[in-house]
Amino acid sequence: MRDAAILLLNLGGPVNLGQVEPFLGELFGDRELIRLPGPAWLQPPFARLIARLRAPGARGRYAEIGGGSPLLRESAYQAAALRSALRAAGRQEAVKLCFRYAGPRAAGLLKALKGDGIRKLVPVTLYPHDCRATTGSSLRELAVEATRAGMELLPGVNHYATDPDYLDALERPLRAALAELPGATVIFSAHSLPVRQIEAGDPYEREIRATREALIARIGEIPGGYIQAYQSRTGPVRWLEPPLKGVLESMGGRDVIVVPMSFVSEHIETLHELDIEYRHVADQAGIRTYRRIPAPGTDPAYIRCLTRRVLEILP
């Protein structure tokens, strides 16, 4: 389909420190992601206030990982790898990034694509687990902008929690870490979600559990055992538990391997939250060895997952 484009959907991030506050404003302004107290019309001004208050601390964290988020660069590598694989399979569709809270945003991207003769859009999520706050929010924004642009939004790739190639991309580095630390406890860490969203029917927790159980079935029982934990909580609501901080604080004297199972790219929540903040927690708790396996990135197995699933849905 030469008149179609494949859009890789992700959160996005500030590429420099000057973009941090606007990025936070977009993030906290999305009611699908974070439902602030009060009516919907109050969320935008509250979001701007929260962004202004949180920006100094956030800028400090981004400064510690190089002065901005690497997510745009990481996602561009993934898009290039997918594009190459599709060309090798004889497909000529454009492959573009479409972010939810930072450029390239849907409105501007679709305008440019329409000018290039693109009329059909195939969304492909870079969130492995189905979730209304991530994939759902991105798809809703894309649907609105597609309608405005007079473009057709086709069925896409919305999740792949137990895809064998996605699991391969997680299993291989985990096995390598276990070979070095055979007695370690494996901690699966996923981005948390407010419990009320799960109670409202969001499939996210179920999908996280499916990935975890599939990986455990592949690797088998280990001496240190497995634990599920959640990170990246914010706000005074009840979140999925147990929190990663509390789990690490109970692991003194042991080796741990952290698997960032809901992230496919390195960004602030892996490079700072896991590698700096929680490594400090581990050191304070007396954990003997703290090991964090990398996100899939452009691991050939992960690119195979995306390629195969895209080829399955293209005419």
Rank of each mutant, 00 (worst) to 15 (best):
R309C: 10
A106V: 09
A102L: 11
Y62H: 02
L193T: 09
A190I: 02
A210E: 14
A179D: 14
H159W: 13
S265A: 15
E213V: 06
V95Q: 10
G29A: 09
L126M: 11
P44K: 05
G115H: 08
M251L: 14
L33P: 15
P173Q: 03
L82F: 06
L113Y: 01
L311N: 01
D299A: 10
R2A: 14
D255F: 00
I216K: 10
I198Y: 02
Q43I: 03
S138L: 04
D30N: 06
E205K: 12
L27H: 05
R91D: 07
P223M: 06
G201Y: 12
S189D: 00
A217G: 09
S265K: 00
L82K: 02
L17R: 07
P173H: 04
D130P: 02
T298W: 08
G252A: 08
P300S: 07
R288H: 06
I50W: 03
S189G: 04
A295T: 15
P44V: 01
V247Q: 00
G115N: 03
H280S: 13
G150F: 06
G18F: 09
G286T: 00
A190V: 03
D202E: 13
D116F: 00
P242L: 01
R233C: 04
I6K: 06
R309N: 12
G68N: 09
G225M: 07
G60L: 11
L97R: 06
G25F: 04
Y226I: 01
R52G: 11
Q231C: 12
A51Q: 10
A40Y: 11
D202L: 10
